[in-house]
């Protein structure tokens, strides 16, 4: 077991290193930090541009191999992911932004998955009934609308409600705003700001997970063990709740483990639309701002998220499914 895990981690590390280096190569060749200085008004002296760029290891006049060496050695030796063209350390920026993303996505993804499981289970038990068809269609609709459209529409609706009621109940700029000094006011304020992005994430998550849960639930509803449970004397509902539901949660949880890790970068729309300064927004900004090191670091972080998600999903299966947990044997020819 230990050796196996070690091998697996090693493989992941290699994947991540290769992916990060490829991203660096691509970023260096595709982004042009010099253009940021060249368009400035009044014009900046070319020599000081060059000096600025060189000091941040961003000058395209330095040979590629030398830039790569500087970049990689500073990561290895100092865990320093470099500087943005305008100055400012990339690593520090990311450290701060990760927590913004965590605060943004946690509630929404949990609610989305929970609601999705409820709806999916409900639908599967009433397959082809009116409620099933309605939910199936709504889920399909949810997956067919680009997420920024959902977020934007929510924003418009919230504005209208605010206007009509003459309140500022819905907040949609940033994480915090003005709030009272009474106990809990700070928390309420944060929750108010979280409300809209959380609704958007919940809609998306519920649409996605209700489909998954419905499919796996239908499979386990018709499984032999549900029939056995009923033959023992359990009613249909008891058999479904104790046996089918429990088994169907295995694949759904795996998807969830995987999806929550990838949401860190995937929630970029929510961050931009609701002005949360998290990782997704940073990813977009670094590219728009020709920030080579920022883009590479974000890419590396995204890769890490994917691998963590994969590992988390595997552990989830191992935890929930005794067939995987215990050593089942198989041989191949």
């Amino acid at each position: 077991m230990g050796a196996y895990l070690l091998k697996r981690f090693l493989n992941y590390a290699i994947l991540l290193v290769v992916a990060t280096n490829l991203s660096w190569l691509l970023a260096v060749t595709q982004l042009n930090p010099r253009s940021l200085y060249e368009i400035s008004n009044p014009p900046i002296d070319p020599i000081s541009i060059e000096n600025n760029l060189r000091s941040r290891n961003l000058s395209d006049q330095v040979p590629l191999s030398e830039r790569w060496f500087t970049w990689s050695s500073s990561i290895i030796l100092d865990w320093n992911w470099g500087q943005s063209p305008r100055g400012g350390n990339v690593g520090e920026e990311i450290d701060r932004r990760i927590w913004v993303s965590v605060r943004l996505i946690t509630l929404g993804s949990l609610l989305g998955a929970g609601l999705g499981v409820l709806i999916g289970t409900w639908s599967a038990r009433r397959q082809y009934g009116l409620s099933d068809r309605t939910f199936t269609f709504l889920a399909l609709l949810g997956l067919s609308i680009p997420s920024f459209v959902i977020a934007n529409l929510l924003q418009v609706a919230a504005t209208h409600i605010n206007d009509i009621t003459g309140t500022r109940f819905f907040e949609f700029v940033g994480e915090t705003g003005a709030h009272g000094t009474w106990l809990g006011a700070q928390w309420l304020d944060r929750l108010q700001h979280l409300l809209l992005p959380t609704i958007a994430l919940t809609i998306l998550g519920a649409a996605f997970f209700s489909r998954i849960q419905r499919n796996v639930m239908l499979d386990s509803l018709h499984a032999g063990f549900v029939r056995t449970a009923r033959a023992k004397g359990l009613t249909r509902s008891q058999a479904i709740n104790r046996h089918a539901l429990r088994v169907s949660l295995i694949p759904t949880s795996t998807y969830f483990a995987f999806s929550i890790a990838t949401l860190f970068v995937g929630a970029a729309f929510m961050e931009i639309i609701f002005s949360f300064h998290g990782m997704g927004e940073y990813a977009v900004q670094t590219i728009q701002g020709h920030d080579v090191h920022g883009a590479v670091a974000t890419a590396a972080f995204g890769g890490l998220c994917v691998l963590t998600g994969a590992l988390l999903a595997d552990f989830m299966v191992a935890w929930l499914d005794p067939r995987v947990r215990s050593a089942s044997t198989s041989h191949s020819g």
Partner: peptide, 22 residues
């Protein structure tokens, strides 16, 4: 396949696309 999944595709496509846009 793993490698391509690990690389955040969105970022890389954006990188290349933004360059060609410029």
């Amino acid at each position: 396949i793993d490698l391509l999944l690990v690389i955040p595709s969105f970022l890389l496509i954006a990188l290349v696309a933004s360059n060609s846009a410029g």
